[in-house]
């Protein structure tokens, strides 16, 4: 698809808008519709469309696999860490009052933002991992080995 001008331009020009809109969704999750899950999916979609057009190798140059592996775990860690922080302050698990004890109503959005970032990071990295693993060795930019076609036929 790399040789197709239409696909190339569409992928290149959609990417910044998708990422900006995803960041808007991520940061305004507690004010409007959306949240971490939708934002993570959108960020992943931006990179995956890029990977489908320019090849998974090009995509993995921007977002290497070791990075998505670490980020997937980091997101869960942020979420659980927020809860454990509340525990260490003597509050219930994920009781966001612990963040600003003098103002529980003001603390609630901060807790939600922190948790939403965890969800967004995990979802984005896992979606990119799924794409990377499903299409391994099949997209332009990835080398085909001689026994590849056999394995694909069996699968």
């Amino acid at each position: 698809m790399k040789d197709n001008v239409l696909m190339r331009v569409a992928a290149r020009w959609n990417m910044p808008f998708l990422i900006i809109f995803a960041l808007y969704t991520q940061t305004h999750g507690e004010l409007g519709p959306g949240g971490g899950f939708q934002a993570g999916v959108m960020i992943a979609a931006a990179f995956i469309v890029y990977g489908m057009v320019f090849g998974a190798a090009d995509m993995q140059r921007i977002v290497p696999r070791w990075l998505t592996d670490i980020l997937a775990a980091l997101g869960v860690l942020i979420y659980a860490g927020t809860g454990i922080y509340c525990l260490t302050q003597g509050y219930a698990f994920l009781d966001y009052t612990a963040i600003i004890p003098s103002n529980p109503g003001g603390a609630e959005p901060w807790g939600m933002v922190s948790v939403e970032w965890g969800v967004g990071i995990t979802v984005a990295s896992v979606m990119m991992t799924i794409f990377n693993e499903i299409t391994e060795g099949t997209l332009p930019g990835q080398e085909h080995e001689s026994h590849d076609t056999e394995m694909v036929g069996k699968a």
Binding site: E30, P33, G35, V76, Y96, G105, E108, V115
Partner: peptide, 26 residues
């Protein structure tokens, strides 16, 4: 301070009211 909750009630339910569920969904 959003009456103690955020304006988007869906987010409020998902990550505050039943934040434990959402953690395991993640």
């Amino acid at each position: 301070y959003f009456h103690g909750h955020v304006p988007n009630q869906v987010t409020s339910i998902i990550v505050a009211y039943r934040g434990f569920d959402t953690m395991f969904e993640t």
